[in-house]
Amino acid sequence: MKGVALLPDTASTFAQQVDLLFWFLTAVTVFFTLLIAGLVLYFAVRYRRGSTASRAGAKETDLRLEIGWSMIPLTVGLIVFVWAAKLYADAYGPPPDNALEIFVIGKQWMWHLQHPNGIRENNELHIPAGRPVKLTMISQDVIHSFFVPAFRIKRDVLPGRYNTVWFTPTKPGKYHLFCAEYCGTQHSRMIGWVYVMEPAEYEKWLASGGEARPGAVASGSGTMAGISTASLVQAGEQLYKQLRCNACHGATDGQRGPSHYGLFGKKVKLRDGTVVVADEAYLRESILRPLAKVVDGYEPIMPSYEGLLNEERTLQLIAYIKSLKKPVQTAEVKP
């Protein structure tokens, strides 16, 4: 058994927290298992038929004992619930403001990942150690699940919906990436690697456009360096102009459509009176199915791009819209 690891590498801040909870649950389970088994054996032997142990003064009920064996497990259970709920909320809640955002597209049977500066990877992900990383994920076909055991993170990747998860890698190295949801006949081949690099090494990797490996593209994995030098925002801007989005969506609200400047993260009132937040999911739905949520004060005249834009091009548009900041109003100085 020498060299056999009980757990995968601990390579993220969440991994340390999850392992601590795991070992606490293991210790509680072992303690109560041994305690109950020991008491059962003790009383079975002591009060077996024919033993001389005194049975005088036996009680049918004991309120203190019943309260004790009810409250102790309840307290332990509540501690575990609060502890686990906090871990879940931290992992699937909003990431820190300085998080590096990477877009992930799952499709049979590969992972396609895109960095903000335009570097694209298949079945590989390069990230810096010590910096929070946010993954915004969607599936192009069926349900997948992004699972990195060393980070203790797993998140379903669904068609037609963005899911996010974030983590902070702590240990440079090479770690397994799996799909943890059966997704078809070649599900077992939907694997990859996550490379955690020292920050300085990662910056060099970015500056060089990613490590181009011989045969990487042909084999369906590796960094696709040189295929797209434009960043997500730049590619999105080109597509935005190509589709003539700026004809209806200008720097200010127009007659045909609202402005996209400063839209991301803003609350939007719809024609039915409801208010929604303009997050990635809202932007995606507005691009592909614009009649689903029509902004108050406008007619449903925008054409649908469903079936015309793949998930990668949709992500590019969203990245560009997110980058549009509301123009700063300067006060006119009168002489």
Rank of each mutant, 00 (worst) to 15 (best):
C248F: 06
F103I: 09
R152S: 11
P159W: 02
R161D: 08
A281G: 04
I191G: 02
K293S: 07
Y162F: 08
A331R: 15
T168N: 10
G57E: 11
V275W: 13
L125R: 04
R155T: 07
Q234E: 14
G68W: 12
F14A: 08
W23D: 09
T13G: 06
R244I: 03
P327H: 03
I301D: 09
D272N: 12
E203Q: 14
F32C: 02
I227L: 15
R244F: 13
S304M: 10
A251W: 14
L6Q: 11
G160Q: 02
G215Q: 11
P96M: 14
V142G: 00
L63M: 09
A278V: 01
Y320L: 00
A129V: 09
G236I: 01
V333N: 14
R256V: 08
I79P: 00
L34G: 04
P73R: 11
G265V: 03
G307A: 08
V40Q: 01
L270F: 13
S145F: 01
M71G: 02
N117K: 08
A218W: 10
G265C: 07
T274E: 15
V277Q: 15
V194K: 06
G257W: 03
D141Y: 04
P300T: 04
A207L: 06
P73N: 07
G93V: 01
M224T: 11
V295Y: 07
L283H: 04
Y282T: 01
G215F: 13
R64P: 00
A129M: 10
R120S: 05
I321Y: 11
G307K: 05
A5L: 07
K86M: 09
G77C: 11
E121T: 05
I318Y: 08
L21T: 03
P94C: 00
Y47A: 11
Q17W: 14
A91H: 13
K154R: 07
V76E: 06
E280D: 12
T330H: 13
G297I: 03
L317W: 05
E311W: 03
P128H: 07
L177F: 06
W69S: 00
V82I: 10
K107C: 02
K2N: 09
F147P: 00
A37P: 03
M137K: 02
D141Q: 04
H187Q: 08
G106Q: 02
G3W: 15
